[in-house]
């Protein structure tokens, strides 16, 4: 038991370390100085209060998409659809932001709730199809991603604007932006959304660990038959799990729409926050705290990457490679576990 817990902590840390090590070797081989490279990465992520603010800003939606995937996963479902849920959440948030005129204490919560509901609805469809017809959620969520992308683009062009690619900015009454946070971070785009994301992490932990809802959801994920025997409604729980996961992802969209950008633009491809969320969840061992930490790591890597070309001449693509390597090492955690066990045995 305790040994298992130790491993859940140790394996991601070692994975990150190995990923960074492999990245250093690749830099060396391609003729760059890894120390300079990583210094630039560090400065790009934590160098001053501006970059720190941007790192937090970038991590915020990762926390929420990571939670979305982790939550579904804990209950036996694979939510590949976070991507689409982010997009519809983003759209809904901006739409409500633009369409309604109200004081902030009504307007902002309404826009956030709209994002959550949009994400939830988007996840409800694969949930109900799985529960009632047994269609695998992976297939449906992937399709829902494309539907979200194209429908959203169309709505931006033809409904929210007159053949423009970007909407107007939302009014201040619907914005998560914070003058105070900006002023202490040299006018970075960090916004109050981080509080929402952290609060969501607490909510996820609470639902999963402390409530009868989490007890049922996990039970259905582990053993459908025993859950039915115990009187749980299996279909309801599958749908509920997807809906909660979708809400988290939808909120991630609100972070972008109400916090970072204040607008929504036509997208030529997926913004990838949902897909990165899979990696965040994996690295965070599908726990709330783990997801928060992993999201910050991802945010820092992605933010710091911007500094690597200017600071050390290392191409940003290399950072993608390092992230991919970290994921690779987490995914092959079996090997790391095995090596750890070996060491333990020999140490005896």
């Amino acid at each position: 038991m305790s040994q298992n817990k130790l491993f859940t902590v140790l394996v991601p840390i070692i994975s990150v370390f190995l990923g960074l090590l492999a990245g250093a070797i690749i830099m060396l081989v391609s003729g760059f100085n890894p120390i300079e490279g990583y210094t630039a990465l560090w400065n790009g992520a934590f160098g001053d209060s501006y970059t720190l603010g941007e790192t937090i800003r970038r991590s915020t939606p990762y926390i929420l998409t990571g939670l979305s995937i982790a939550f579904a996963f804990r209950t036996g479902l694979f939510n590949i659809g976070a991507e689409g849920q982010v997009i519809v959440g983003w759209l809904a948030a901006v739409w409500v932001g633009l369409a309604i005129d109200a004081p902030m204490y009504i307007h902002l919560p309404l826009a956030i709730i709209a994002a959550g509901i949009a994400g939830a609805l988007w996840a409800f469809i694969p949930g109900i199809l799985k529960a009632k017809l047994g269609v695998h959620e992976v297939i449906v969520t992937i399709m829902m991603n494309y539907i979200a992308l194209f429908v959203t683009n169309d709505i931006i062009r033809n409904v929210l604007t007159d053949r423009q690619t970007t909407t107007e900015a939302i009014p201040a009454s619907a914005s998560l932006a914070s003058d105070w946070l900006q002023s202490i971070t040299l006018y970075s785009r960090v916004h109050y959304g981080i509080l929402i994301a952290l609060f969501a992490a607490v909510i996820m932990w609470f639902i999963i660990q402390r409530t009868t809802i989490g007890y049922e959801l996990k039970s259905v994920g582990y053993n459908e038959h025993a859950s039915r025997y115990a009187g749980m409604n299996v279909s309801k729980n599958i749908v509920l799990s997807m809906v909660i996961a979708g809400t988290f992802a939808g909120l991630a969209g609100a972070m972008e729409g109400l916090g970072t950008y204040g607008t929504i633009s036509v997208m030529s491809g997926f913004p990838n926050m949902g897909f990165d969320g899979i990696a965040v969840a994996l690295l965070g061992a599908n726990t709330a705290l783990g997801v928060v930490l992993a999201a910050f790591l991802f945010g820092a890597l992605k933010e710091g990457a911007g500094e690597m070309p200017t600071g050390a001449g290392v191409p940003t693509e290399l950072v993608d490679i390092i992230i991919a390597l970290i994921i690779f090492f987490v995914a092959s955690s079996y090997i790391i576990r095995w090596i750890l066990l070996r060491f333990k045995k020999e140490g005896k």
Partner: peptide, 19 residues
């Protein structure tokens, strides 16, 4: 198949119908 959720602790299994 029916009697236990094997991945739950034995304690959690004891309240499978009464939780």
């Amino acid at each position: 198949r029916f009697g236990l959720v094997l991945d739950y602790s034995i304690g959690e299994n004891m309240v499978l119908q009464t939780y």
